[in-house]
């Protein structure tokens, strides 16, 4: 039975990898690419709400504990307990290195479609609650939407982004910490 699910997952991954937008990533101007990344940031900021929702929604304490563990990784600390930059901090830094200004990152408005997708992502989680196998549904949404596909997205963007990190904007190479 899992064969069917695995096959479907692979189909979706491959469809995302060959998404029309990712097929033309190389042709996008830097300004256009920054627009994509700034909208994508709104979905990155959502991740904490997603984890918190799933933790509250899962009934199994064992499952809650596994999700809690990931949430804690979103707020890393060093061995002395000092807070380190979060993935969102690192994303901000990377966006700056890619050429977005501080103000641009902080003040670019969320597009209507991004807002729609963000709200529907939360609605997808909420709708799991009324399903007969709600925990399974929640885990599937979390795993595939918030973990697996996110990695595919960044994998598709990376060839273009790595070029910029390697050469830098002012000729000074930067190391990406988020992507």
């Amino acid at each position: 039975m899992l064969k069917e699910l695995n096959a479907y997952e692979r189909q979706c991954i491959s469809a995302l990898q060959s998404h029309p937008l990712f097929r033309k990533t190389a042709d996008l101007s830097w300004d256009e690419l920054i627009v994509v990344l700034l909208q994508r940031r709104y979905l990155s900021l959502l991740i904490i709400n997603v984890f918190e929702f799933v933790i509250d929604a899962l009934e199994s304490e064992m499952l809650r504990a596994t999700v809690r563990l990931i949430l804690h990784e979103e707020y890393p600390r060093n061995t002395r307990g000092t807070p380190l930059p979060s993935p969102r901090d690192l994303l901000f830094r990377d966006l700056r290195h890619l050429g977005a200004s501080r103000l641009q990152i902080l003040t670019t408005a969320e597009s209507a479609l991004t807002r729609e997708v963000r709200l529907e992502s939360l609605a997808a989680l909420e709708s799991c609650l009324s399903l007969p196998h709600g925990e399974l549904a929640l885990l599937c949404v979390l795993r595939f939407g918030a973990e697996v596909l996110v990695s595919v997205e960044y994998g598709c963007l990376w060839p273009r982004l790595s070029e910029r990190f390697a050469h830098g904007i002012a000729g000074e190479a930067q190391r990406s910490q988020f992507f």
Binding site: L5, H19, E120, V141, G145
Partner: peptide, 9 residues
């Protein structure tokens, strides 16, 4: 759920 997650992306 996989389909829905894909659709949103």
């Amino acid at each position: 759920q996989v389909k829905r997650a894909w659709g949103l992306k």
